[in-house]
Design a protein around this nucleic acid. Sequence first.
DNA 1: TGATTTTATATTCCATTTCATATATTCATG
DNA 2: CATGAATATATGAAATGGAATATAAAATCA
Lengths: 147, 147
Amino acid sequence: MKLEGDTAPFVDDYLLYLLAAASSSLSGKFHQHVKQQNANVNEWRVLACLVDRPGLMLTELAGFVLYEQSRLSKIVDRMELQGLVARTKTADDRRKVLIQITPKGRKIVEPLIEAARRHETDSAQCLDRSEIDALKSALKKLIRSNG
Amino acid sequence: MKLEGDTAPFVDDYLLYLLAAASSSLSGKFHQHVKQQNANVNEWRVLACLVDRPGLMLTELAGFVLYEQSRLSKIVDRMELQGLVARTKTADDRRKVLIQITPKGRKIVEPLIEAARRHETDSAQCLDRSEIDALKSALKKLIRSNG
DNA sequence: TGATTTTATATTCCATTTCATATATTCATG
DNA sequence: CATGAATATATGAAATGGAATATAAAATCA
């Protein structure tokens, strides 16, 4: 028999916690894979965001990668040294720096993307197609509606 | 007309990205609120996980908070200094350390939980009740099925 | 029992992140 | 067009995190 006040812990049904926990669970296994290859997680994220885009301002890229500008600036420093991305200035606005993926970066990220697709289908085995679609659609709505 | 090969960027429909992006979007605003109060994000997470639980081993708590053990150990150090949590040894197994929330920690976390509930309903305005239920249920399945 | 393995936590070293601020460029407005 | 506000990026000092390891206790088992 359940006593009054014996409710489930707060976080167990708290949306932000469920999002963080799902994100963390699913990322765990894949991040191991990333490290077994030539990369680390920051590099993977940056390259995955850049791969089908022509070149992004540092700040735009920071938005996609979900990192702060100053953090990304330093990550790009390291990736530039490794030759994974390139910084180029634009003519129109000389403050801007465009970050572009290099062929070397592309060579590293492409197999990772294939692995990511496989990992996604594996991880989502517990859901059927309509649940997955509904999940992704709900996530996209949340992202759109909240800054 | 859409050209061949002119597909959406990879991350735009990648589940792990959507989870991370949703988590990050929704957290953003709330984490500001946390800082405006007496706390930082690590403290909030630890206290929120402890609040309706009797006392957890460091390793158990690390699992809930989604942090690595060595990181949490240091966070608990700082929180102990502030009097937000207490470490106590157990009699049965002298390796174990139980982490418990203190009255001071409780006083800080309770209003934050209220704010978190309000923030959750605000953030999920874009979804109707059945979508929210389906979302949470899908997230819970993902968490259960993936370590 | 004594040796070995496993589990729980803390700690050390070093890389990374954060916060605040600097620098450079563009924009807006009197 | 000059001056102040705004925007884009970079950087320095201090705080934090991650990986490996140390320490200590318990469990396993020959």
